[in-house]
């Protein structure tokens, strides 16, 4: 039988995805953060690369939209580093989804990233990705996720 049932190459959907993501500009522009079409395309292309590198499959619009909404009000992000920050956050998100062994939902992980980025990390992506997320995922794998959340609450007091 010659029929190939491989899934359609998702990159065919690139223009539609760029358009859909562009709608987020209306929300982030309130904070002075707007992505150009080229930057939006970079984000979508990098999403596929991150998924492939991390061995993941994603349905729907991807995680960037949620990242934009979560991070656009951060005091540590300006228009000049908006795209670069999103690209790194997106990479880190998929990497740590694997590292957490599927024990964290998208919202839990993004919420933790946002709290840490705006809190202990003070806008440092390096601190966020190489220290806090490592610890979060290690703790999640060991089944003590509540402890990390409580520690964060204690620190903020």
């Amino acid at each position: 039988m010659e029929n190939d049932f491989s899934l359609e190459p998702l990159k065919k959907r690139l223009p539609a995805e760029v358009r859909a993501l562009g709608a987020c500009n209306a929300f982030s522009s309130k904070y002075g953060l707007v992505l150009s079409d080229k930057q939006l395309e970079n984000l979508v292309v990098r999403r596929y690369e991150a998924l492939r590198e991390n061995g993941r499959v994603e349905f729907g619009e991807g995680i960037v939209k949620k990242l934009i909404i979560a991070f656009c009000d951060s005091p540590y992000i300006g228009p000049l580093d908006w795209e670069e920050t999103l690209l790194e956050l997106q990479d880190a998100f998929y990497f740590y989804k694997n590292e957490a062994d599927e024990l964290l939902s998208d919202d839990e992980l993004i919420d933790y990233m946002k709290q840490t980025f705006n809190g202990a990390a003070q806008g440092s992506l390096e601190y966020l990705t190489q220290t806090s997320l490592e610890e979060l995922c290690r703790t999640a794998r060991n089944g003590f996720i509540g402890d990390v959340e409580n520690e964060d609450e204690d620190e903020s007091l």
Binding site: L7, L51, R56, V57, F59, N98, E102, S105, D106
Partner: peptide, 22 residues
Amino acid sequence: LLQRRTGLYTLDESSSVRVETA
């Protein structure tokens, strides 16, 4: 069907899954 089953499997809490899971 795969998209729907993946959504049910993750309880719609995760937009992506490992390739092996898919």
